[in-house]
């Protein structure tokens, strides 16, 4: 292979900005074509699908805000639970290690939707907490549900990162008379952070892409709002494509840059 060929190949294997622009152009033109066709079919009815979509857009965007809030909160929860769980998986005591492995295994292998159902139905919607009557809104419960599968996967990432640290690090730390705990906190974990960041971000993206499932249980996030808007606008079948296409674009615009950054970091840290 000549060098020119090698370079051409390297260029084509990395998805570049131009392709992203192309996707946007294609999506927008598809959107417009569909709307024009729709408008011709429904001339005379009260407003084109585009007009209805535009009217309800602020409402849908507000719903999308809830997707973002849920994804961020769930990620915080998942990290808070997942990191200790991952460390526990590497514990020397079987009493700690085995339950941690079981929990990790369970939540990594159960479908998100099943976890969502179990949290929604098995955790009471209201109850007494320290003598006070509290009601837990559905979106909070959904957020908690979404954090569980991610927790399992973060636990596994942490375990993998700890294992990937060469044993020489453990040996030299014990040579300096550090305890296992001290070694973990001061030597091992700091080295794990950098190499875990790309997978962590990848799971954030997957988490965000799962938040629409909350709509199934009546949470008014973007998809739920869009469905409600379609209903309110008259429930016409010509709404379906533009509304769902709009939702796809919305998520793509948010997730694609994150995915790009993840790829970039992956490549950057792979060298180290």
């Amino acid at each position: 292979m000549t060098q020119a060929e090698t370079m051409r190949e390297a260029r084509s294997t990395s998805f570049n900005l131009r392709q992203a622009v192309w996707i946007a152009v294609i999506a927008v033109s598809l959107f417009l074509v569909i709307n024009v066709v729709n408008n011709q079919n429904h001339a005379g009815s009260d407003g084109s699908a585009t007009a209805v979509l535009l009217r309800w857009m602020p409402y849908i965007l507000e719903g999308f805000g809830l997707n973002l809030v849920m994804s961020c909160l769930a990620m915080v929860l998942a990290t808070l639970f997942g990191v200790p769980l991952g460390i526990a998986q590497q514990s020397q005591s079987a009493f700690v290690r085995l339950p941690a492995q079981a929990v990790t295994h369970l939540f990594r292998n159960a479908p998100w939707l099943v976890v969502l159902f179990s949290v929604m139905y098995l955790i009471p919607a209201n109850g007494n907490f320290l003598g006070q009557h509290v009601e837990i809104p559905d979106w909070i419960k959904a957020t908690f549900a979404f954090s569980l599968p991610v927790m399992g996967n973060i636990s596994e990432i942490v375990r993998g990162a700890i294992r990937s640290i060469p044993t020489g690090q453990w040996e030299s730390a014990s040579g300096l008379a550090l305890s296992r705990r001290q070694t973990m906190i001061h030597i091992i974990l700091p080295q794990c952070v950098k190499r875990s960041i790309p997978s962590w971000m990848n799971w954030y993206a997957l988490l965000t892409l799962s938040t629409p499932m909350a709509a199934i249980l009546g949470v008014r996030e973007a998809v739920g709002s869009a469905q409600a808007a379609m209903e309110a606008g008259g429930g016409r079948p010509d709404f379906l494509i533009p509304f769902y296409l709009f939702l796809l674009c919305l998520f793509f615009l948010y997730i694609y840059p994150i995915a790009r950054l993840t790829k970039k970091l992956e490549r950057k840290y792979a060298v180290v």
Binding site: P212, A215, V223, L247, F252, A259
Partner: peptide, 22 residues
């Protein structure tokens, strides 16, 4: 490349709804 990016970076549930209803 575009196919891969579009389907990896949008929610599978919305894809499903788009295909089935749309």
């Amino acid at each position: 490349g575009a196919y891969v990016q579009i389907f990896r970076n949008t929610p599978p549930m919305v894809q499903l709804l788009f295909f089935y209803f749309g």
